[in-house]
Computed example of a mutant assay.
Amino acid sequence: MEILHNFYLIHQYTGICLIHRKYGSIEFNQDLVSGFLTALKDFSVEFSKGSGELKIIDMQIFYLLLVFKEGILCTAAADKNDDAKITHKVLSDVIDKFVDKFGDVIGNWSGDVRIFKNFESIIDEILLNGRVAEIQLKIPILKIYEKDFRKSQQKIMKKGLILTEEDLRVAQNQKPKWTLKRLPAQVITQGFLDKEMYKIAHLADGFHTISDIAEESGKPEADIQVLIDDLDDLGLLKFIEIK
């Protein structure tokens, strides 16, 4: 599940966190947060000059997204599959609505964060409780696998279950026999695919994400994305949507 895990609204001049909302599983050491956010505030101010631009910091397992304007810094810890453009817009919207509501107060603010408590529900609504930038995961699957895959899913759904992203981690090591099917060798002899592409193509089995295919094949994810696009253009693929 892709989500905005943590959200912080920070005061420019003091570096004080005005509002913190937690939606996901990524944990921060709260004893270190204050100094960390102050450093982010200084960095963001220098970067954007308060223009409202988006800055993304790669934290390896997630992205930290920063938007600074109107003397307020918004920062969110987001999954890497979240839509950064959507996140940028909603973080800017949060700042705009906050300034509309508290603009007159923040200039002579005494330091009491309790006065912003009722704005938390507005943030939750704007961010859809962290799901605002969620992108539905699409898993590539060769058409030669699709019919059998659908049948297997129908059996699962009859039991009241549904395939989720979490299931993929288990399924990769427990693939059914129909994944042993292969595209006809003519796609190589006729020049549609080379041998390496042919091998990688069969990892598109409905259980591997593009990232998984890249990891298993030892290829850069960008190269795998190009290959998936080429297979799609050749009419060899379908995509399974995972919630």
Rank of each mutant, 00 (worst) to 15 (best):
K155S: 08
E215N: 12
R150D: 09
K147Q: 07
I200H: 00
M157H: 13
E221T: 09
I162S: 12
E165C: 01
T164Y: 02
I156V: 12
K199G: 11
F149R: 04
Y198F: 09
K177L: 13
L163G: 00
L163E: 03
Q190W: 08
M157T: 11
P220R: 05
K159Q: 14
R169Q: 15
D212T: 06
I200E: 05
Q154S: 12
S217Y: 03
E221C: 07
E221A: 05
L168A: 09
D148Y: 10
A185C: 10
E216G: 01
G191N: 05
I162K: 14
L180I: 12
Y198V: 04
S217M: 02
I210G: 04
Q153V: 09
E146R: 13
T179L: 01
R150E: 14
I213E: 02
K151N: 11
I156W: 09
G218Y: 03
I156Q: 13
K159G: 00
I188T: 07
I200L: 08
K181W: 05
Y198Q: 04
D167L: 09
F207V: 05
T179S: 01
A171Q: 13
A185Y: 14
E146N: 10
D194Y: 08
P220V: 07
A171T: 10
I162T: 14
Q172P: 02
G191M: 03
F149M: 01
F192Q: 11
K138E: 11
E216A: 10
S217L: 00
P176W: 04
P140F: 04
K147M: 09
N173A: 12
L137F: 07
H208S: 06
M157F: 10
D167A: 01
I144W: 00
T179F: 04
N173H: 15
A201Q: 00
I200T: 07
H202Q: 03
K143W: 02
S152I: 04
K199E: 14
P140S: 05
K219I: 11
D205A: 05
E215C: 06
G191R: 07
F192G: 08
